[in-house]
């Protein structure tokens, strides 16, 4: 009998690669384990549809289990199931974790509030809405004053997409975010993505980790510094 946590760790890619490969070998030969995995996946989608997952699990479901249309159909089924069967009064869900009370703000291309750039159209995240702007590569490496971010009230999760110069990309990075010499967030391995012509490295951070102040971000690849950024969070 496999621990349920192990099933979840497999589905959400939280196992080391070697363990994951070994686990795959196990379930490929074990119909019962395969069935347990399917059940665990269903429960993940149910919890996701019900808004019962924490930010990190939600992110992982998004990243690893909702890639294909057939997988998204499983989520649509879970949402329909809850809608059809739940007899409790349920709060209206705009997106499972995206509500006015708890907004997830996606910040694309280091999407900062450029108050020092009056020529840029003012972009304000609407409550519960999607906030996404792209910043050209040459604007990324300046003083933190140029990259000031104000998190709207209710923000739970922030995604920072660090943009790379063409040709710089590595297979995977480790990200370390520090404030006044103290590490506030580390993540790795983080893999880059191509979005149109841009190469971005996304890093997800709980908003609670980002207090007002100046931050430094170091992305390393194979132990070597690959990129360095600065930004500041306004009160």
């Amino acid at each position: 009998m496999v621990n349920r946590d192990e099933l979840i760790r497999y589905l959400l890619h939280q196992m080391p690669e070697d363990d994951r490969a070994a686990f795959l070998d196990r379930w490929s030969d074990d119909p019962e384990l395969h069935e347990q995995l399917r059940m665990a996946e269903s429960e993940l989608f149910d919890a996701y549809a019900g808004g019962d997952l924490g930010p990190e699990e939600r992110r992982r479901v998004e990243e690893y289990l909702l890639v294909s249309e057939s997988q998204r159909q499983k989520l649509a089924f879970a949402e329909a199931l809850r809608t059809s069967l739940s007899r409790r009064p349920r709060r209206r869900i705009v997106w499972p974790w995206l509500s006015a009370a708890a907004a997830v703000i996606v910040l694309a291309g280091m999407s900062f509030w450029f108050e020092s750039r009056p020529s840029r159209p003012e972009l304000r995240p609407s409550p519960g809405g999607l906030y996404a702007i792209s910043v050209p590569t040459d604007e990324l490496r300046g003083t933190p004053e140029r990259h000031r971010l104000r998190l709207p009230n209710g923000t739970e999760l922030v995604r920072l997409d660090f943009q790379f110069e063409p040709g710089e990309q590595a297979a995977a990075y480790s990200a370390a975010i520090t404030q006044a010499g103290q590490t506030v967030w580390t993540e790795g391995p983080v893999r880059g993505i191509l979005r149109g012509p841009a190469y971005l490295v996304p890093v997800w951070i709980p908003a609670t980790a980002l207090k007002a102040g100046t931050y430094e971000v170091r992305l390393t690849a194979d132990g070597k510094l690959a990129a360095y950024y600065q930004f500041s969070i306004e009160p």
């Binding site: 990243e63 890639v67 089924f77 329909a80 199931l81 059809s84 705009v94 996606v106 979005r195």
Partner: peptide, 29 residues
Amino acid sequence: SRRARAEAAYELRLATRNEPDSAMLELLR
């Protein structure tokens, strides 16, 4: 190519999806 395409799909879904699929609801019923 998988990662880049998945990311694009994710953004699209975030921007557009908001209510349970009505066709799915009917089939489920």
